[in-house]
Structures are given as C-alpha cells and as structure tokens.
Design a protein around this nucleic acid. Structure first.
Lengths: 339, 339
DNA sequence: TAGTTTCGTGCAATCGATTACACTAAAAAA
DNA sequence: TTTTTTAGTGTAATCGATTGCACGAAACTA
C-alpha cells in the first residue's frame, strides 16, 4: 500500500500520459488549467513524491553541494556551515558535510567521493597540510564550481571567501600595544597557510608602526591545541627577556598559554596580556575571559554560498571571485589592564 | 575533452556491449578474464567514473544516510556524527548531516526533504520540543530504517541507542553525597524528554538510598544555557535552606551556575559542589574544571550505525533494537573537596 | 557423430522524470 | 466554407547502469 507513487501511476488513474502529468506538475503553460488542477489534486491525494534521483539523472544536476571542513565541532566551522545552509536551503540545495580531520589523503578521498556523487559544487576549507593541488583540478576539470573559504590555495578558477587576516593580526597586536605591552610574542600555525602568514604580517606591521623592534625569538609556529600553548609559554618564559603579552593565532593555544601562566604565578592581564583568534565560545565562558579576533563565520558561510549560486547562474562564464571580509576584535579580560 | 565517460563509450571503443562492460566492471563471473581485464584497463585509461545517480535510480538505493541532530557544534553530537561516519564510510555509505536547531517544524521539513532524496536510512536525535510523531511514521511507511540516538520517542519499529541516563544521574548524585553534600539541587531539561526524566529518577534513587529526603524545591526544569544556570542559582540561594550542591543535566547550566556562585562569593567546591552532564570539552578547560557525566558519544554513534547496517541486511525482517550504553562520571575540581 | 552443457555476450526492458516533436481538434482568420 | 492558428496531449527518446533471457560457439558426453 505504501509503494512509491510515480507519475505513471497518476497518469494511469487519470487516463492521460505521464508526459502530461509531468508538465502539469511543473506548471508548464501548455497544460490546460483544468488538467493541471486535476493532476495536482490527484498527486496530492495519492501522496506523490518526486523522485529526485530520476530528476538528477535526467538533468545532470543533483541539487546538492558538498562542504568540506577540517572539523565540524569547531564553532568557527559549524557557524560557517550554518551560514551556508541558511543561504542554500531556500534555493532548494542540499548540503553534504564532510570532515578531513586535517588529513590530506582524506581530503582527496572525500573530493573524489563527492565527484562520484554528481555533486553540483564544492565549498571547502583546505587542511593545514595540503600540498598537492591535483584533486582540486579534478573538480575544475569537471566544470564543477569550487569555492575556498578561510583557508585557501591560490588556484586559477577557484573563488575564495576569506577574512582580512592581516588586519586581524594588526588589530590584535595594536590593541596589546595600546594596553601598554612592550614585548609581544606571537604563536602561529604553519606559515605555509596564508591565514597564519597574514596574521603574522599584521602583527609585524603593528609593531613597526609603533616603533617596536621585531624579535624573531618571540615568534613560534605551533600546533593548535592547549598543550602547544603550554609548551610555548614554557619556552618564552625561559628567554632572558621574556615577553609580556601574547597574540596567538589560535584560541586553544591562547587557552593553554593562560593555563600555564597561571601555573607559573603570572598575573593576567596585569603582567601578561593575551589575545586569541577565532572567538570560540569558550573564550567568553572562562572566568578570565579571553580576548579574541572574531571572524564572522556565519557571514563567511553566507558569502561562500552566494558566490556558489552566482557561479551556477552564469553557467559557462568562468567567474572567479575573491571576497574578503573584515574581522573584529573582541576585547575581554585577558587583555584589559584598566577596567 | 572532459565530458563524462559512460559504459557506452567504453563499449564502443572495444566493440562490445554496455552490458558486457557493466558486468566486467562489477566482476560478474560470467565474463571472461581477458574481457574483464581489457574493460578494466580501458575504463581506467578513459578515466571512467560510475554515475552513482544512475545506479541509485536503478537499484532504488542511494547509499546515503541522513543524520539529524539539534546542533552540529555541540561536541556531544559532533562526536556521535564522527562515530557514525567511521562506521559507515568503509561500508560505502555517505552521510548527510542536518540540524534542527531544536525546531519541530524544521525537523519535519528535514525528514521530508530526506525522504524525497531517496535516502537509505535516517539516524537522529529528536528536538526537545517534538510532540507529533506523524513524520516518523512517514519514514517507517516507506520502509526506511529509522534509528533514534540519545533523545528518543518510543515508537514501534524504531530502534534506539541511548545511554543509561538513570545510572548517570545516580552516579553523579551518589558522588556528591559521598563528598559530604547534604542538600543537593538538580536542574533538568523538560521531563517530557526521557533522558531528563531518567536522570532525575537516578538522582532521586541516590538520595533515597542514602536516606536523604527529596525536596521538590531543589529541582528545577530549565533551558540548557548558561543564563538558565545563573537564574537557577539565584533562585536556589534565596531558599530559606539553600542547597550545597548541584547536579545539572547540562554542562552549560552547570557553567552558568558556577559563574553565578562565584559572583555571590560562594567557595567551590568547599561550600558548594557541582556536577554537569555531557562532558563538553570546556568542562575540562576551565581553571575550575567541572565534573561531568560522559556519555561516550563516539561509541553511541558507532552503535547507531551498526544497528542501521543490521537493518539493511535483514531486509524485510523488522527488527527493533534497543541498545543502552553506560555513562561514566568524570570527577574534576568542581566536586572534589579533599585533594 | 549427434546431443548436451557450459561459457561469454548481446538484446532489450527497466528505474522515474523530462522534453523535442508530432498530431488532433477547436477557434480564428480569410 | 476553407484555411490557418493555437491550445492541449500523446509519442518516444533520453539520462547511465543493471540484469533476466536468449543465443551462438566451444567443449564435453555418450
């Protein structure tokens, strides 16, 4: 009784053709008003549901996009995904979400799997370790829109949506300077990733603008977890002239740093100020709330989705957009000396 | 040059039929070894990729499952999803992830959308407010496996994977009692959800086991955010005989409670101990780390996936499994009086 | 040598929806 | 009244892969 109802079933019941039913359901103007109404009502009565697979096969469009991120449980990426969904849902697109866990091979496998699924587009943030670009070219070769958000590689034909990481690094550092910090350290991810490189450049720019000499012993490339933050502080504090502030490219590293500093009995923010990056929710939760650079991930997701939609519309025309959003510094206790 | 290659293209090139190509690629034993090899090599050379849509249309199986959760950025749900993916990926299934944001209508819409996409199964956790069950019956009527994890409704034909919430509540409460707490409060979600009801029952059981009278003014049903935690503490502390401990069904509420308690100058854990539920990562990050009940979400996801796979294999046979996993209490600073 | 298997392929239908093209009857124009 | 439009449907091919059935040739049996 609950077998699938097809347009042929409807056609048989009404003694017409499946073609007519199809046209009626698609509001083809060539169908008479009376037939259309009849078909519509019968379809509803029979609980007809369109078989999207058949449509996809025929049209070559699956109405599905793939979103690839390193982790879905980072608030930053989760928010981006939400932004993408909010923009794409109303347009009838489905979103498949995949995680790479920062593994380049998984990234390649995922992309190939998506290509086999006849996806309409791919929106993604590359892993920290991605070197090869051949899997991206596979996508482009199939004429499938590819959009990078946040973490990107410069590849012709690929649109990108990023924030101004340079400005984020600049604002964070400038803020620390204005709070009176003189010896500002910086922990970053691998400079091979543009976002980290840019934040670092922003950091240097702020220093030089205020005439503070750049010291390379104050800069460290680390993993993005709390332990890395602890290690970094341990090393920094052993320097003959230890820093009095840290701008970290990761909230997790900032957190670890704070934990270690407290262990060492350093007063925050009086003797040491800290600013992180990403504005993860926990930065706000902490008793000693952590200042952080917000990347407006929701908007980033929406922009990425819009860029995708544009590419779908201008079919044939190869557009390549570069959207850059502005970050905003959230100032909290970890860097506010005078309250 | 990058047009799609089909089995017909391969067939034409080799002067054989598409049927033969299909069989060769599927390792059908009726195909001669030589032909098989030839087809395989040609397919590889031509960069042939199977059109999954066509396969899905023909077989009626899409090899895709839908996973529906309230939020993807709760560590609990993200971990479940990861567990599901790890189990299903090797079996060739894709995972579509959807969020309801605790909205019943969104839940209904999502389910219908998934049904239209010819999904092979749905694994989900219902919203806090879900009342209706008609959309679940739609799924069952289509003979599509439906599996609830964590939050469930008792519906015939639906398998469930949950933790023993009663035991979780019991363990947490017992621990507080053993720490010397005498007046233990409890904040819960809506009792309409079994998980909250069960945790509450476990709480009561522990109390009665130790001969501590149950007081209903110590129990409150709240939202699951930090503000709710603050409000709850405010009210509790105004009681003539305020509690000296809190077992909360939510880590976020526990966090809010702790923040408020500190504001009020209450010493934790000496004068007031707190245990949360879910073992969200931040509970460990806090300077004052929060004790919490871990639900082993990764395992929960894997179990849910395995139950789904079983249902797919015993096609026709209606099995209905109820799997119950064990929670484990993570004891941290917020409830450890003597260290 | 004639009859029976076995092996390897081809033929053609099928999954469900879409759509160019063809066709009929009624309406409009001549 | 005859011719031309036009509105409304039907016919059949198509998207790409799968598969039951049929068939010819080779291999085996008697």
């Amino acid at each position: 009784m609950n077998e699938k109802v097809t347009i042929y079933d409807i056609a048989k019941k009404l003694n017409i053709t499946a073609a007519t039913v199809s046209r009626a359901l698609n509001n083809n103007p060539k169908i008479s008003e009376s037939t259309r109404k009849l078909v519509m009502e019968t379809a509803a009565a029979m609980n007809y549901k369109q078989n999207k697979l058949a449509v996809a096969l025929k049209s070559g469009k699956s109405n599905t996009v793939g979103v690839i991120v390193p982790y879905i449980d980072r608030n930053f990426f989760a928010s981006i995904i939400r932004g993408i969904e909010e923009e794409l849902d109303p347009m009838g697109y489905h979103t498949i979400i995949c995680q790479t866990h920062e593994d380049e091979q998984k990234e390649k496998d995922t992309i190939n799997a998506l290509l086999n699924t006849q996806i309409d587009g791919i929106l993604m943030s590359i892993t920290k370790v991605t070197q090869s670009t051949s899997h991206f070219r596979n996508v482009l070769n199939k004429q499938i829109p590819l959009i990078f958000f946040d973490r990107k590689k410069n590849i012709p034909g690929v649109s990108t949506v990023t924030i101004n990481d340079f400005d984020g690094g600049y604002q964070a550092t400038k803020h620390l300077i204005e709070q009176g910090c003189k010896r500002i350290a910086h922990t970053s991810g691998d400079f091979a990733l543009e976002i980290y490189k840019d934040r670092f450049e922003g950091y240097k720019e702020a220093l030089s603008e205020y005439g503070i000499p750049f010291k390379k012993e104050y800069v460290m490339q680390t993993r993005s977890d709390t332990d890395a933050g602890k290690d970094a502080i341990t090393k920094f504090m052993k320097l003959p002239n230890p820093p009095d502030a840290l701008f970290s490219s990761s909230d997790y590293v900032a957190l670890g740093a704070i934990q270690k500093l407290k262990e060492l009995g350093v007063n925050i923010p009086e003797d040491f100020s800290v600013v992180g990056f990403s504005n993860e929710p926990f930065t706000k939760f902490m008793e000693l709330s952590i200042s952080s650079v917000d990347q407006n991930p929701m908007e980033m997701g929406k922009m990425a989705a819009r860029v995708f939609l544009e590419q779908m519309n201008d079919s044939g025309v190869k557009i390549e957009k570069k959207v850059i959003l502005s970050p905003s510094l959230m100032i909290r206790k970890s860097s506010t000396k005078n309250d």
